[in-house]
Structure formats: C-alpha cells, structure tokens
C-alpha cells in the first residue's frame, strides 16, 4: 500500500468533517429503528399493524439515508435528498397524527410525537441533513463520479 495520501482518500468520499457526525447519528438512528421494528413485528404485530409497519419503514429509510450520505456520486446524492425529505415529511405527519388521532397509533413509532421518544433527534436531523446536502453538492467536490 503506497500511493494513497490522506488528501486523495478524503477526496474520494463525499463526506468529511462535521458531515461524519451526521452520518454517525444516522447510523445510530438506523440501528435503533431496526432493533425496535424487529422486536415490535416479531412479538405482537397484530396489536398495531400501522404503527409497526411505520417503524419498519422508518428503519429502511434511515439505513438508506445513512448509505446515501456516505456513498459517492450524483445518484446517491439524489437518494440522500429523497430519503431525508421523506423523513422530515413523515416525522411531521406522523408526529401530528399521533397527537391529533392517538387511536391510529396505539403503539409508538420512531416518529410519534415528532420523535420525542428519541430526544427529538428524528425531527432535528433531517433539517441538518438538508442543510448539509445543500452546501455539499457533488459538483463542488472533485470526485470521480
């Protein structure tokens, strides 16, 4: 292993600096959502099918968003926008519904009460994600894509 200087390795990836913290937060959220939805669906799916399906959806979206933030290229950049936009939409919709119509969600999801069960991280992180994406378009970073 010779030719890879630190500069060239950091240029190959889209994300660096504080963006890495964002990726870490997304990774943790993906892990938490996956664990929660797996347990919910395996132990008592019939009790709250809508809430539990949403938990599973949340898990998939967070995993996709984590990957999309790290992976290089315009395609993944678009996926990052879509998944993160989707998260913001859902945390607001499900958050509102869980307060207005509690019967709809007899069990909590990651997005219930605007992510209150997760210290509102699910509400804050998509906004930070969008800010980060807006300031780091693939064109501005000289990568191979």
């Amino acid at each position: 292993m010779t030719a890879t200087s630190p500069a060239s390795t950091s240029r190959r990836r889209r994300i660096s600096g504080i963006g890495l913290v964002l990726v870490a937060v997304y990774g943790i959220l993906a892990l938490a959502a996956t664990g929660r939805s797996t347990v919910q669906i395996l132990s008592d799916y019939s009790e709250a099918p809508l809430a539990y399906s949403l938990s599973a959806l949340a898990a998939v979206v967070y995993i996709l968003a984590t990957v999309a933030l790290v992976a290089p290229g315009r395609g993944w950049y678009r996926v990052a926008w879509i998944t993160i936009g989707f998260e913001l939409l859902f945390v607001l919709t499900v958050g509102t519904l869980s307060i207005v119509d509690a019967e709809l969600f007899p069990r909590d999801t990651v997005w219930s009460y605007y992510g209150g069960g997760y210290l509102f991280v699910p509400l804050v992180v998509p906004v930070l994600g969008m800010l980060w994406l807006a300031r780091h378009r693939p064109g501005t970073v000289r990568d191979a894509s």
């Binding site: 660096s16 890495l20 913290v21 870490a24 937060v25 943790i28 938490a32």
Partner: peptide, 24 residues
C-alpha cells in the same frame, strides 16, 4: 471509526455514541 479517521470530528462521534448508549 476513531482509529480509522483521525480527525476532531471522530472524537465528537465517539462522544455522540457514548451519549446514545446513555439514553439506551
């Protein structure tokens, strides 16, 4: 992560992970 990526933000990542464990 901190061993692979020797930047200040890796230190923050370690901290965030510890705080997440506290919540868990």
């Amino acid at each position: 992560w901190a061993l692979l990526e020797r930047s200040r933000w890796s230190t923050v990542v370690v901290g965030v992970a510890c705080l997440a464990v506290a919540v868990m």
